[in-house]
Design a protein around this nucleic acid. Sequence first.
DNA 1: CTTGTTGGTCAACGTCTGTTGGCAAACGTA
DNA 2: TACGTTTGCCAACAGACGTTGACCAACAAG
Lengths: 190, 190
Amino acid sequence: MTGTTSQARRSDATRTAILAAARERFAADGYERATIRAIARDAAIDPSMVMRYYGNKEGLFAAAIDLDLRMPEPYAGPDGDAGRVLVRHFLDLWEENEVLTALLRVGVTNEAGAARMQELFKEQILPVALRLCPDPAEAPTRAALGASQVLGLALGRYVLKFPPTVAMSRDEIVEWLAPTIQRYLTAERP
Amino acid sequence: MTGTTSQARRSDATRTAILAAARERFAADGYERATIRAIARDAAIDPSMVMRYYGNKEGLFAAAIDLDLRMPEPYAGPDGDAGRVLVRHFLDLWEENEVLTALLRVGVTNEAGAARMQELFKEQILPVALRLCPDPAEAPTRAALGASQVLGLALGRYVLKFPPTVAMSRDEIVEWLAPTIQRYLTAERP
DNA sequence: CTTGTTGGTCAACGTCTGTTGGCAAACGTA
DNA sequence: TACGTTTGCCAACAGACGTTGACCAACAAG
């Protein structure tokens, strides 16, 4: 052995190549059609290497969608354009890499993927809503409403590719969605 | 031959049993995991019957998701609670059978499914927006925004099963979403 | 009764899947 | 040099998949 803790291994390049290929394939094809053989081909290695480094397909998927939403701190401004900040942040997240697309595509047909999405909601989205909502008891409902709008837009824009949704500019999306999110999180119950 | 046009065939019961089983499986499992063998087992017939009646798996899927959204006529009331009417109508559609769940689950990972969703949007949703929007040129964008909210909610409630989204009552959902849809369709551009 | 059509089963095909174990080369250390 | 470990490839397994064609039973028409 060359070291005690997390020494750089000679195979790190291969490991990350596998992970990158896996994210691409999961994002493009979903869980079933993203075969280990295809991922290995993209990474230019043998399929058996995937098994050695990630155990099995589920392990590979778990490693591929390990992400942090980096939710913004509670907004400090006088009152809320929290909606604007949040919508912009999610657009950034969705466009900076394919992890979220992969997660959404897989979550729809795969148990583990759906579970991971629920986890992200509970551990990273809900806390933000708890700080912004007037009544903490309403936070889960309000957060879920906001998530539904953001997920729905991402679905139409990055997965189903509805032409009008794809054609909108980022700024247009922010201007349209921000008031919705703002209302879901902070407005008085209808 | 017993008749000239669309005579009742002796195999109609089998045909509809296959279709019902197919909708269930597609809704529960998505395209790949809904195997013809499993569908045939549910319908208590041989897999080869599916091939004979629907040609191949794609043909079966096409037959299984042939649906009409039955969009309501342009609302006659003084001004709009079009939002309320539309949200309630979509909740009805999603809950009356599994076709829409099947379509969403498949559309996310299957080309034909996504294409069918775009078709439904263009042919059945867009016309409604054209009647309700102030400026017809904005109708596609506004309709797409409305679709994103409705699809997002359905995703959370019927597919991903986010606990807070599942827990909401139909009336709660209508009260929260209706103003959003109303604004997307009719309010002045932000 | 005979005959053609329809409804249905059975067994098999070729292909693709995730996964496994063995073997060879490259490497780090002594 | 010698030796254990890491990295990688190759070939194969067993199971599941969509799909096919041969075959049998029930029926309707002459």
